[in-house]
Design a protein around this nucleic acid. Structure first.
Lengths: 167, 167
DNA sequence: TCGAGATTGTTCGGATACGAATAATCTCAG
DNA sequence: CTGAGATTATTCGTATCCGAACAATCTCGA
């Protein structure tokens, strides 16, 4: 959502379309900006950090989660990555094809599948993750230092609330 | 990214994996929470507002943008919706199949395609959008009223910065 | 006028995304 | 010990999603 129209233009258009209604533009800005920001930041990472490694955003997140919790169970990876198990199966296929991760059956529970990074996968993450964090610092630097924690808190509040509603 | 692990657990794991590096966890929290929040809020909308209409998130956004700027040029819809032109072609096919939108060639410029909502599309949006805004208000109410505008501002700052970098 | 270059929407190939159905495995009450 | 029910990863069908290649159309200098 990287619109070329200004906020004022958009509000004006919306008002003319729904002039008979009362709308909360501030609430609209909160969610609208949330999606625009997430999309823009994600594209930024894909272009500036992930592009050269040939990883998609999701593939990187899966690789990252696996790297942190290795050996990781697929159900946990899916949960932590925010994707369905069905999607994860496909992403793991891609990562195996790239020789970055590998699957193995759990001895303790035959239903479970454990995921590990290959040596190539480890090497990649040891370079990629610091590069990622450098970009995170660069991006965060646009928010006043004193407000960063509060900003992160508000984001977490939104996450918690919407997830709570899901139950 | 809706993890079951606590922030402290994750930080501890990361530190043990990259103990030889200095990482900025606050910057990490900013971007990480941004994606979690966007994902959670989007899922919330899909379940609570979009599910009954059978619209995907993207299909709704495209419909919304078209509705506001109608008749809308596809290049603008793609830009405003944050998707590629290739993706838009597919989504428009879906919307046409659902009899919610329709395409037509521009008389002034034969390369352009103009998009309009059908009567059914208008009717849907006139019900859907207010319902959407009600949810936006509900979600935003979790952020103190005095901080909402500042929060939206910070999100916009992130969007502007990362898009600026793209040039 | 005309044609090289720019712009636009579509197609194509491949990856991501999910819900539902499925097969394999485990649990645990009886 | 056993089998009904629960849990897990995969497969299947369908819809996104994107970059690259493409065809149609427009622009504008010579």
């Amino acid at each position: 959502m990287a619109g070329s129209h200004t906020l004022a233009e958009t509000e004006s258009q919306i008002t003319s379309r729904l002039s008979h209604m009362t709308l909360d533009f501030e609430a609209m800005a909160v969610t609208s900006n949330l999606f625009r920001a997430a999309s823009a930041v994600r594209n930024h990472f894909e272009r500036n950090v992930l592009a050269e490694s040939g990883l998609s955003w999701t593939a990187f997140v899966v690789l990252w989660v696996t790297w942190i919790w290795e050996p990781a169970e697929t159900r946990d990876i899916a949960e932590e990555s925010g994707i369905s198990k069905a999607t994860l199966t496909g992403v793991l296929k891609t990562l195996e094809k790239m020789d970055l991760a590998e699957r193995s059956r759990s001895d303790a529970d035959g239903r479970l599948v454990l995921v590990n990074l290959t040596q190539k996968g480890h090497k990649l993450m040891e370079n990629l993750f610091p590069a990622f964090n450098r970009q995170e610092i660069e991006i965060s630097s646009n928010i006043p230092a004193g407000e960063r924690a509060g900003f992160a808190d508000m984001l977490r509040i939104l996450t918690t609330y919407t997830q709570e509603q899901a139950k």
